[in-house]
Nucleic acid binder design. Sequence first.
DNA 1: ATAGGGTTAG
Length: 685
Amino acid sequence: MALSSLATLCSSPPVSAVRDSPAVSNLNGLSPVADDAAAPSAFLRSGGGGGGGGDLKEIKQLHCCVAKKGPTHNNELIAKCAEVGTPESLDYALKVFEGWKEDECVAGSLFVCNSLIRACSFAGLGERAILVFVRMLEMGVMPDKYTFPFLLSACTKVSWFREGVQVHGAIVKMGFAGDMFVANTLIHFHFECGDVVDGRRLFDKMPERNVVSWTSLICGYSRRDCPKEAVSLFFDMPNGHMVSALVDMYMKCGAFVTAKRIFDCCVERNLVLYNTIMSHYVKRGMAREALAVLDEMLEQGPQPDRVTMLSAISASAALNELFFGKACHGLAKWIYHYTEENAIERDMLLDTAFVDMFGRCGDPKMAVQIFEKMEKRDVSSWTAIICAMATEGNGKQALELFKEMLTQGVEPDDVTFVGLLTACSHSGLVEQGRRLFQSMEEVYGISPKVVHYGCVVDLLGRAGLLEEALDFIKSMPIEPNDIIWGSLLSSCRTHKNVEIAAYAANRIPELTSDRTGIPVVLSNIYASEGKWSEVAKVRLKMKERGMHKVPGSSSTEVNGVVHQFSSGDESHPEMSRIALMLDEINCKLRDAGHVPDLRNVLLDVDDHEKKFLLSRHSEKLAIAYTLISTGQKMPVRVVKNLRTCSDCHTYAKLVSKVYDREISIRDNNRFHFFKEGFCSCGDFW
DNA sequence: ATAGGGTTAG
């Protein structure tokens, strides 16, 4: 490794830095692939393009031009490689670079070296950054003040202390230690990879300091668990606009009130400070507060950036009061359009978050559209789109995407399999699901977790293979949890199997968690079989333990306002109009041959009463209200906190036909898209 | 140019 020579090279820098040389380029054995003679700058201008593979091809074409036109174009070639920034393109650039002869160095070589080092630093390839540095010294290209910040940050990222110290030596020898940027990076380096005392000494020696110097110091201290030092610095600070580091520190150690107080006191709030406080609100599940911060930013600046949008996306997913943890479509659209209209920088992370967000809030079309436009995709991106297909109930598409992902050489992870298995489960693809589960460990070396076992139980149970599901649970190498038994229980309800249901219910150590709604499902099973005495027993048990049935509740968004209805609810201000509409719908559906399925009423009352209760299920109220409040072809979007009942399902199918409206119902685990009398789930759910 | 804020699971 050339690293050992670093110190020697640094101590005796070559004399001439830049030379002119019209010599023919030596391509060091790399043969260009095409013989195309377009100007290199044309390639550079064309920018963008397809995925990483396409870029590399472009680079090779560029290389070909270099061969023809001489070494001046090496610069463009390397710059292009740096811009692409993948390990492959950087390797390629390095190969070309290593092929240089001293006398080939041309004006601008320094700039090329710097941008290459910068690219290596961005890509976290510290070793390559050092290689470029060593090589440039060998060739007599003298570094400047721009070289070192990149080089040091590359060392810092990979925690290369020894190399960093050597670079530090070079900086001193070459006389760059007085530069503000260089000094700041040195502080950061010492705090991250070395000693806080060294970092502090450097800071104290600086004749002048700027915001970055202070931030590096405060963040350095707080990361190294020296909050006292960080706080005392805060009071020494010449100006108050670098509080974000401090707020972040307090938030991280749980001193929420202190953090908030500092935020409130701070007059000059910059972007990072806003992003800091917002991200912490989101982490604590305080979505409303997070969005209030966003509002304030929109009102008085600073202009949000992609980090802000990422927090906003999480916040929208966490708005569970009204949307039961499923993102709210209106907000999702707003976030997306805001990002587009304000030309906020997009990257893989943000695009993936968008795909995920639209997948969750019932807009798979948008999810697909964004996914298709993405230039780079990693496991998370593929997983997000697979999950979007899974919640939509489009199992086939999910499996197709998985295949494509594999052909593109992306390795799945455990989350991908959660998506795949639920996709199979929602579409009744039992055999495919079984095979995927098998392959997890055998082919991909991912050992299944409880979630995955849960998915399989769900897969078998939904398909009516209750015995097999039970055997599967018994054979699990890990302890099944409430959720697994609960899943089996709800399958028992769909497929009307009281025996296995009772068995499952008895396996659940205690009817503890309210959250899983297990006792409710059990009592519903008994109720639908008319076993009212069993129902009473379960209800009594629930009462003894102070548990309540979570009431069914549906929300719908009309003109940006969310309206929430619970079953039998008459509190809506427009209830009389809604009641009229419900009657009208009932008449039309009756004419279309619909007979209400009274087995969905789980109370021991007479049929007339049952009919009435059934007609007031929360999703029906929400649908009726949306129909009277929105224009003709507007889609109806309903989100429900529990599973939707089979009568409401049939009802929605018919309404979609009779009223010619697209309806979507997001229940607690998937979407149903109703159109022209059919549902996307194909009645399998 | 250097630092600080960031997605993901039934």
